[in-house]
Design a protein around this nucleic acid. Structure first.
Lengths: 150, 150
DNA sequence: TTGCAAATATTGTATCAACAACAAAAATAT
DNA sequence: ATATTTTTGTTGTTGATACAATATTTGCAA
């Protein structure tokens, strides 16, 4: 569905305005898709994102600062988000002995298992895009966005 | 800057995964741009969005329901958001006499003046995109997003 | 060495959003 | 006409988020 129909707009001020609104709208739309998949597992998209970053560490711990750097959302308080994951037993936190300012976060077995459990539903949701766009178009879209941000 | 550099990622699972993350990230990125422009005026992006919808009504009032339909964000409570605008004197609300369930919202002179005041900064921000993308590319980007959502 | 600046994390507070429950008016059905 | 359902909006509650203020550790400079 075209954005002007979704938002019941007659016209846009410019192609740049149309692109701007479309990117923002589509981002929110995609986040909702992801969240609806995650909801049954009791995770928010940000929590899921953090778990994936930690899995990508392959056992190496990550501190809060480096987690924030890699998040899609700028996370204004990593401490409380990670604490929620810890309470669920999905991550472990330890003070770094080398540099006592840092807190080392690692994903637990339980966290890895949960990611494995969720994976199929997420992949399915992401691949829904494949029915609309060819692989080439998806790549082109991402390239344009990279270019757009400068 | 490419998304993989921003998020310090080695690779993506697929072009679809890359596009998904890129759209979400770019949407948040754009929202931040808009918000930084609006901040000095004490408006959130949602409040600004509502004011623009009301201006588009050209004097005709809009009720809360129709405002929600046209918002980029699904707004979970329009009542309170509009109340904030009313307290600032930017909108007026009246019970619709024809259908007393409805509340008619109209933008005030003060609201219109504020929009005019903000306009140049917003346009400037939106046109920053023009230094990165041609008009044709912007259109192509928006088309791909429309297509992506199906 | 001492003092100051930078890096890292936590906490407090105020605002905002999601979700569900509720209410009132209007439309529809019996 | 009365009861039921739908539309529209409001409110309560709980949890999330932004932002600023505050520690604590480390690194560096005088």
């Amino acid at each position: 569905m075209k954005l002007e129909d979704v938002l019941k707009m007659k016209k846009f001020e410019s192609e740049y305005h149309r692109a701007t609104l479309n990117i923002i709208y589509s981002g929110i739309w995609l986040l909702e898709q992801v969240n609806s998949v995650l909801k049954p597992y009791g995770l928010s998209d940000q929590q899921y994102n953090v778990l994936r970053i930690l899995r990508g560490q392959k056992g190496k711990p990550a501190n809060l600062f480096s987690i924030q750097e890699r998040m899609i959302h700028p996370m204004s308080n990593a401490t409380r988000l990670v604490e929620k994951l810890r309470l669920k037993g999905l991550v472990k936190r330890e003070i770094c002995e080398k540099n006592r300012r840092k807190v080392e976060i690692t994903i637990t077995k339980k966290g890895l298992d949960l990611l494995d459990e969720i994976q199929p539903a997420i992949t399915k949701s992401e691949n829904a895009m494949a029915t609309q766009l060819s692989k080439k178009e998806a790549a082109q879209l991402a390239d344009l966005l990279d270019k757009m941000r400068g």
